[in-house]
Amino acid sequence: MNLRLSLKNGQWKRHLLLLVSSVVMMYPVFWWVGASLKTNSEMGSPSLFPSVPQWSNYISGWTAIPNYSFTHFYMSTFELVFGVVLLTLVSCSLVAFGFARLDFPLKNIWFALVLVTLMLPSQVTLVPQYVMFNAFGWVDTYLPFWVPSSLGVGVGGSFFIFLLVQFIRGIPRELDESAKIDGCSYFGIYWRIVLPLTKPALVTVGIYAFLWNWDDFFGHLIYINSIDKYTVQLALRLFMDTQSAMEWGQMLAMSLISILPAVIIFLFAQRHFVEGIASTGIKG
């Protein structure tokens, strides 16, 4: 159906409403891009984009924090987040396979507890976890992020287990059944048969694990103290706090760059996003 035909069919009202919604939703983002190229004095001007774009905002913003450039903070953040994503994929897929394919005593109770922890506010475990990690000497390292992820209880852990269990349950069992008859071990079935078929769900989990850990501010705030180990989120906050006169242009430029990884992933994997969110609450 071409546009004119759909407009004739009385769809123009829907198009108009959607267009207005899109503009309302995206306008702040356009403002963001424009403002990141403005000088401080131009910030209050009504035009969306500046007369002369200040690309220097990006260049001087990148090195605005003394002794460290943002390159350093990005490297640190990637180190933290990629570790978390990898460990999350391994641990959550193992656990999900156990729940979806094997039977063992108390299984239903444990699985119910996975769902309960999905709703548990993190504040309740915050203080003792901090005390524990502090006692282990893990504060100001990335271990408070890596260790929970390797145990499937990092940011979003229960959610990922739940999502993968749902997905694995949907995979037909004929293949694993025949592999079992051929003498394949449970780990072999997990590794050679179920895991390859779970790829779409694993991509979804990987994306969310990346985004949520990239955005996670509270965890970084509590466990990372030295600027040398700062993540991009913490660096942005430092940037904001250390400026006596707010360099808004530079700050907006740096914050805009910090969302680029999320935007790039989103554009490349849109399908996984929508399916990932949709599959959580609908089934069952």
Binding site: K107, L151, Y190
Partner: peptide
Amino acid sequence: AGYLFISPWLIGFLVLTLWPM
């Protein structure tokens, strides 16, 4: 095998969720 597969989460739950609670 079942408990082996869920052991990461089980340890995580007991040590990093239940015990802290």
